[in-house]
Design a protein around this nucleic acid. Structure first.
Lengths: 338, 338
DNA sequence: AAAAACTGCGCAATCGTTTGCGCAATTTGT
DNA sequence: ACAAATTGCGCAAACGATTGCGCAGTTTTT
């Protein structure tokens, strides 16, 4: 009646017995401490491989004080942008040997039990990728000296961040629309207080108005397809002479809703009205939508985000840092005029 | 020059000193051991709350042998179905106080470093939600006695599983198409060896053919939009008299590709040809697509999956279990005839 | 040739929690 | 009033790895 796992794990003690040395020697040998002779180091290394030895990360944490665990807060993955971000984070963290514990995903509020995990598992740091998440998790981290890095969101609180140049992105879209002959724009924002959405909208409006365009109306797209859809219907219902000749939605999911609504209402994109989005998610790039957008450099954003996090963990005294990466305008069919 | 965190963590020892009892008493009191008098238990409980005490989960693991950590392998979240699954898993695990460490996400191969984490962090169990992931992670778990539960995938290897009745789902779609007057169907499968796709296809074909329909052709949709799109083009290019009157795609993402391609090629859905999918993801339900589908009971699937995992962890000797939940046909516009 | 420096390794404490065992003090049984 | 059972708690040994310190034995310096 064995309740214990049949094959007892190989530990550092097992190895030390096999090698006829002390446990400390094994520990040092395994991490290549030069104080241990080369021959012993090699012998132990071979033994470790043969036995399939895996250090117990939890035990290591106890003495070293570092868990090697990072927390991840993910935005609503109904927005493919966050799904992309997730995959990129997972891929890059696998390369670096970083481990992410999921603290939260989605748009709901963060549960208490979740934030407890942050402390119970002694996470070394936390990555927050949500645009408008209540900064609850960030507060807890701050209160406990856990480094926080935000991707796609500029923190009010102290924390480092990586985002793309949202204002410049909005301006690029404005520029593009102006150059292709548009003069009357509707803007669909997110309603929320997300710095992202606000910056995009601000950047767009500033450039568009400065260069002689005018903003005919603004709508709340609530960051979701349905929000864009509703706004699209309203726009389609406007009298042709009052209707804008282009729409800028602060994210692609919203823009997709807009396009579908406009078409449903009998308008043709871009002949009757142009639509531009933001993020450049694959779905918006599909032939059926072909929406002009502003691409966020996701790979680079994640890379710099992890850099920041790793640096901060190694050197907690480092000052907060806000990295802004340049994105790229991707002109597509939805704004092609004449 | 304090390198240590400014406010040293409250541990069980801190509490024991404040309470004037031993550490073991605190430990037992905190988990409500009746051997400790009620008064002491209450006093310690109060002290713990005041001090904001959080047990160190890592230290607990060391002595108890249980980490409370679960591994998660997620399918490609470019398929919204997996994004939904992710959110549901996260939501339900928060309620239950379960913690998930992300082992993998996406369709790429599983990295070695990832599987190492499984052992290093002594995970108690593992949840695999990928339809066609190389069962590498499952093997490692099996080899190390880590319970595995698969959602949306029936394991070859020993492991428990939860899935919806895929064959029955395929049959329902077939029935629905037959009843709405279709007789010639094209099937778009996933090419891969995923049990899901195979069962859906098999269920569909069996029922459709038995009831007098015929299968005109099959295509490989590779589980992605683009695969469906390519197949859609091929179908549209067929001579009208040879063309099927309906298409069954084994997942909604594929179906969306089909619909877009058919439309692009000038055909009208469902007038010229009907299209049905599987999964009932929100995107396929949108007015622009309105695709008939078979809904998987995600909430229940995740609930049973976690049940299975928790039970298996508590009682490793439990036999493998395969749970099949009934799904639901959702008729929509894409198959509405005449 | 004696002192100093270095090399290679082990001892033992430590991280925070759990748990088997045992020991007092109190209550119960006779 | 004395033995037995019960109650309430502490001691100390784990769990697996890390690390400061120290101790031999060898090599280099003076």
């Amino acid at each position: 009646m064995e309740l214990r796992s049949s094959r007892p794990r190989t530990t550092i003690v097992t190895l030390s017995q096999q090698a006829g040395v002390s446990a400390s020697t094994v520990s040092r040998a395994l991490k290549g401490d030069p104080r241990i002779s080369l021959s012993v180091r090699e012998r132990i290394a071979r033994l470790a491989v043969d036995a399939g030895y895996m250090p117990n990360a939890l035990a290591r944490t106890l003495s070293s004080g570092r868990s090697g665990l990072l927390g991840l807060v993910l935005g609503p993955s109904s927005n493919p942008f966050y799904a992309m971000l997730l995959e990129e984070v997972v891929a890059q963290s696998a390369e670096r040997g970083l481990r992410f514990l999921i603290l939260h995903a989605g748009s709901g509020p963060i549960e208490d039990r979740t934030t407890e995990a942050l402390l119970q598992y002694q996470m070394d740091g936390c990555l927050i990728t949500s645009a408008d998440m209540s900064s609850r998790a960030a507060e807890i981290c701050a209160a406990n000296g856990v480094p926080v890095v935000m991707i796609n969101r500029v923190p009010r609180l102290h924390a480092s961040s990586v985002s793309c140049d949202n204002a410049e992105g909005g301006a690029s879209i404005a520029q593009h629309l102006l150059e292709s002959g548009h003069r009357r724009a509707a803007v669909i924002h997110t309603g929320g207080a997300s710095s992202n959405g606000i910056d995009r909208e601000r950047g767009f409006i500033e450039r568009f108005v400065t260069a002689g365009g005018c903003i005919t109306s603004t709508f709340d797209g609530r960051s979701v397809y349905e929000g864009g859809h509703a706004a699209g219907y309203e726009i389609a219902a406007m009298a042709p002479e009052r209707r804008p000749d282009c729409v800028f939605a602060v994210s692609d999911v919203i823009a997709m809703g807009v396009v579908d609504a406009l078409r449903k209402a009998g308008l043709t994109v871009p002949t009757d009205i142009s639509v531009a989005g933001f993020d450049s998610i694959p779905e918006a790039a599909r032939a059926a939508y072909d929406i002009t957008s502003f691409e966020q450099p996701i790979v680079a954003m994640v890379r710099r985000g992890l850099d920041l996090l790793v640096d901060r963990i190694a050197e907690p005294a480092l000052p907060d840092e806000a990295i802004i990466l340049r994105g790229r305008l991707i002109p597509r069919g939805s704004t092609r005029r004449g």
